[in-house]
């Protein structure tokens, strides 16, 4: 299969999942679509296919992927996801212009699930917008990709202590929607105490 065919396959079969991942990161569907498009172009512009690492080379760190929709993800898809993360972290300031053009924010329908309160999730979606990209990336890697602190640190290239600071600050900023009623100050503060 040529790179062009492979790109088409990944875009058509996994494009929605990739946009979903980017959307979790950036919180804007249009921006997420652009992030994925640019990540795919970047990955498939490589003359060496991403699925064929250099012989003897150590696998890139953090090349993990999530399988929330129950479908297998290829090494290439994992690579695209990591590229999406890097583009998000590197280019977030420019990306804001997309949102200025046509903001597409989450609606309750998009976070609807029969086993959980719609309002609570919508509040969390909104609270995520308060975070800086680094804080949000740490939250996504920790609580969406289910990484350990050292894995998060390795993935975004900072010290574990820095990850804890970002997480602590992020969760503190979201404490009003994450803390259960009647338990003020207990939940998030426990995280802050581990710094």
């Amino acid at each position: 299969m040529s790179w062009s065919d492979d790109l088409e396959r990944l875009a058509t079969e996994r494009g929605t999942a990739l946009v979903g991942y980017a959307y979790v990161l950036c919180g804007d569907v249009r921006q997420a679509e652009d992030l994925v498009q640019d990540a795919l172009v970047k990955v498939y512009s490589r003359l060496r296919p991403p699925g064929k690492p250099v012989e003897g080379a150590r696998p890139a760190s953090g090349m993990r992927t999530i399988l929330l929709d129950g479908r297998g993800a290829t090494h290439t898809e994992a690579y695209v996801r990591r590229t999406v993360l890097n583009l998000y972290l590197d280019g977030w300031r420019r990306q804001r212009k997309w949102a200025q053009i046509e903001p597409v924010v989450a609606t309750s329908d998009w976070v609807r699930s029969p086993e959980s309160g719609i309002t609570a999730r919508a509040d969390v979606v909104h609270a995520l917008t308060r975070l800086t990209p680094r804080q949000r990336s740490c939250v996504v890697l920790r609580y969406f990709e289910d990484m350990t602190i050292p894995q998060v640190a390795e993935t975004i290239g900072v010290a574990p202590g820095t990850v804890k600071r970002y997480l602590s600050d992020a969760l503190h900023a979201m404490r009003d929607v994450l803390q259960p009623d009647g338990a003020p100050g207990t939940a998030i503060d426990s995280g802050r105490g581990t710094r």
Partner: peptide, 8 residues
């Protein structure tokens, strides 16, 4: 976040 991921 899982719902966001699946809701696009």
């Amino acid at each position: 976040m899982a719902a966001m991921y699946q809701g696009v």
